[in-house]
Amino acid sequence: MRPIDLNLIRTFVTLYESRSVTLAAHRLNVTQPSVSYSLSRLREIFNDPLFSRTRDGMEPTFLSTQVYASFRHALTQIEHTISDNQHFDPRHSQRRFRLALTDLGETTLLPAILQRMQTLAPHVELEVVPLEIEKINSWFDNKSVDAVVCSRDIMAPSMGRKAIIEERYVCLLSKQHPRIQKTLDMETFTQEHHVVISPSSGHSLAEDILKTHDISRKVSAVVPHFSALPRILENSELLAILPQQIAQIFARAASLQICELPFDVPNVEVTLYWPRHADDSSAQEWFRQTLIEAIAPGHENNGPPGAG
């Protein structure tokens, strides 16, 4: 077999991880015909189709799956070697970073993150992807996401982590609620009707506490995103439990009030996660530090991210 151009290996790995010619071209900053041409050359070299088109994207063949791990490892080693010998200059870099956030994180954290990044690195691009907890390990393994910020406690030896800020839960409801003004006791809490955020949002601690203490209440609706709450609550007598920071944003934007919960819920840590294999990258270290500075200005950072 004749030598393979490194760009073909990079194209193959990107195609395997994205399962899409369009997405691969976007990540590689090349045209779709260029990716298709590279795929044709790879098919000729390996004498194998490598990928077949399906409704769910590009499905790898058996041979493709076999060679991916070796190519991914080799490419990672090359990238690390280059990264170790290059200084990342945020002022001139045109690199794209990918960050996974919940819809809550997009509302409360993203504006400050973008402002900080635009100030320090005006040409850098940030792509935000919706957080899917069950995919974090695979995202980090295939380098499709650079960092995750969420309040879910995730423990894995392949991940670096650093707690950034603490958040607390409160109850949010309409200012015009006929039976509640400023304070909320347990009897009222259990008798009123509630709208609940799906556990897939990553914010299930308060719900877990309710179950632990066998506190029942009347649930009228379950919604997948926090962004639906302001209009729902403003035009109803429903109650919702959510983190204080987003509750304050919603209360300023709509006719809503915040009440303390009538039971104790421990504070929750908002944590930054990243793949351990990125620890030695100056670009990744800059990105992590910028996220920390944006989310929690003045946050104590004893040493490089990863110490926490």
Rank of each mutant, 00 (worst) to 15 (best):
S174C: 06
A247H: 08
L210I: 06
Y273F: 10
S255D: 14
I232V: 06
K211P: 01
M159D: 04
H213R: 14
L238K: 09
I209P: 12
S200E: 00
F263H: 02
L229W: 00
P266F: 11
Q257V: 09
I165L: 13
A228H: 10
E269L: 12
L229I: 00
V195D: 07
V170T: 02
E234S: 15
C171W: 12
F263Q: 04
E192K: 11
I246D: 13
I232Y: 04
M159K: 09
H225M: 04
L233R: 12
E234I: 11
T188D: 07
E260W: 01
L173R: 14
S227V: 10
E269V: 12
P275Q: 04
V219D: 14
A251Q: 11
H203S: 01
D214L: 14
S216F: 04
H225D: 13
R252Y: 08
H203P: 00
A278L: 10
P230F: 01
A253E: 15
F226G: 07
P266T: 11
S201T: 00
S255A: 13
A221W: 13
P275L: 02
K162P: 01
F250L: 06
E192P: 07
D208C: 02
E187C: 03
K218I: 10
H193Q: 15
F226K: 02
L184H: 08
L173Q: 11
M159C: 10
I209T: 13
H193N: 15
A163Q: 06
D208K: 09
L229G: 01
F226T: 05
V170I: 07
S227H: 09
W274H: 11
A278Y: 09
E260S: 13
H193G: 14
S236F: 10
R217L: 13
